[in-house]
Design a protein around this nucleic acid. Structure first.
Lengths: 189, 189, 189, 189
DNA sequence: TATGAATGAGTCTTCATTCAT
DNA sequence: CATGAATGAAGACTCATTCAT
């Protein structure tokens, strides 16, 4: 990703998260990026294309960061818990990105499918560990795909939903949802 | 709600759920409702106004239906479980309405606040029962607001996310998420 | 064709003939018609659609006018000559329309096909008479489709090509081309 | 014309003939030529300038080729017929070039004038022979400029118009139009 | 000579809203 | 109550042209 493309990427994340995909205009993205409108189209085919790039690129960064931070753990249950904690912190850190993700999660069918594709990478991290935990008899059998999806949903939506309050205690919030999740997969944590 | 307004309400739900708020046009809503475009403006101030009406009216119907169906239960934990089950069925029944709700949950700030206001009624049903369960020592102490919100999120998003698959086993899905939730609030169910 | 549509039709003919299809803008057409730009789109699907309407409607008017003015003639050769004369006068009368037609005759494939479809009506008038003349032994056998097309081409292009000169003697011009055509179909006229 | 300029010339002819002047983009011409877009501007002032060059250069090539192939004939009537035949073959050979010519013949005024200027060279070949034929009493008196123009028009437009059919019999077509033309100038051929 | 990233004016098109009937 | 023609502001996208390298 060269310099100009990076400028556009950052601007797009900012705009999409602030106003959603539809209300963000190419003019705004260009102005935010500090480039001419034509430049957007030199680097991207369309607004849709920028969105796709933002999601794909963003999810890759995030999945890598999660993998890095949970690499040293062996026990799959510990790993799921660690992923949750990291995901919680990541949502706070990249809150604009995740607002972009969730805002498009239930909109246009086409953009929805792109999103699911990009989220796969993330879900897989959790699914693998859930499966291993089940195989080792650490947690009860369950539909790992559904649970992985919900773990992501619970964490991100909780952070976003509560982010508007002025005096959020994110530590307590983190404990609450991770407790809910770990209990949910039948592991008093 | 007179006949014409009802036609518009149904049409709006259908359009909003199919294409989201922004991609739904007043022309489409009018055509779907079988009325002239001007008629929309006779009954509603604006497109925003139709959205607001749809959400408010829809949530009222749903909360009432939930209350009806869980009225006879006494035990607060049973009641939470029952609300979950009913909510699961309701999401299937009114799937277009809930897609509309979720599609706007993380978008435009103004519409987000309207949504939260409307959802309060639903959350309260769960919060009251969670509190009672905590008071009676049936479940552990927790942040009831956060949990109520997540119960709603887990159920609706699971139904919507899996609705695209062609051969969904909703019964298994229901067991999975309700199990996850009830475990989550520390009640092996 | 109601009043507004007629305004747009006239404006479109004027613009297309003056600057061609591509260089004519919807803004210009709207301004020339004295309506708002949105009004164009209330009555027509697209710029392309306006073009199609202009050609179809225009050719219908012209073919009708030609048929009216040549109705009373019986002899097919006389009729072809009469059609030529009328066509010559029509090209002068509706010169802007015919410039529009010729300007698009060799451009975009799609618009070209529309044009051919619309011109069929006109060609048929000539083809029928040529065939009859051949059948009656009045002129030699020839490929009537090719000749009909060329009769149209010779007349319209001659008028348009010479229209730029300031002091055109249209009567002499008319004699020249009609003589050329009638000789061409082997009828010293 | 050096190598790069020749690449651009060929690419421009191809593009202009396929999509017309307006729909052809500098990007396409550059890509077709296999050079960078900036290179077009190194060799030409503008898109208009490329068009002008294409027409001028093309017509020169064609007029030379016609002169070569009809040089040995003496009789002016034979020469006109020969020019027609050669022109027919040339239109088939350089069909894309002639589509470019005709597509701009009735459009933008400025480009129209350039075209007429370039066509003069061709018309003159015919005009000279027509005049000589008239002077020698071989054909009747006529407006040679109008006839020369129409001879060009009839031949090129017939080839182009019929080129879309899949199974064109160009020999029959050639006979038809040349017969039409030679009869037209009053010379049963 | 040649390149290709960057530009921004210009275009088509959409659509919520108004209003006379 | 209901209509639908008309509006115009706004937005996505195109593309000839420039210029630093």
């Amino acid at each position: 990703m060269n310099k100009t493309k990076k400028l556009i990427f950052d601007a797009a994340v900012k705009c999409f998260s602030k106003k959603g995909f539809h209300k963000s205009t190419m003019d705004e993205i260009a102005e935010t990026a500090g480039v001419a409108k034509g430049t957007l189209y030199y680097h991207f085919k369309s607004k849709e294309d920028i969105f796709k790039f933002v999601i794909d690129e963003g999810m890759t960064v995030i999945v890598n960061e999660i993998n890095d931070k949970t690499a040293k753990l062996d026990n799959p249950v510990d790993k799921v818990a660690a992923v949750c904690e990291v995901q919680f912190q990541m949502t706070i850190k990249y809150i604009e990105f995740f607002r972009t993700v969730l805002s498009q999660m239930w909109g246009d069918e086409e953009r929805q499918l792109q999103l699911r594709e990009a989220l796969k990478k993330y879900f897989e991290v959790i699914e693998i560990n859930l499966k291993e935990a089940i195989d080792k008899g650490l947690i009860e059998k369950c539909n790992v795909e559904v649970i992985a999806f919900n773990i992501f949903g619970v964490i991100t939506s909780t952070v976003l939903y509560n982010n508007t309050h002025e005096d959020v205690n994110f530590d307590e919030l983190s404990d609450t949802v991770i407790n809910f999740i770990m209990n949910g997969i039948n592991q008093h944590y």
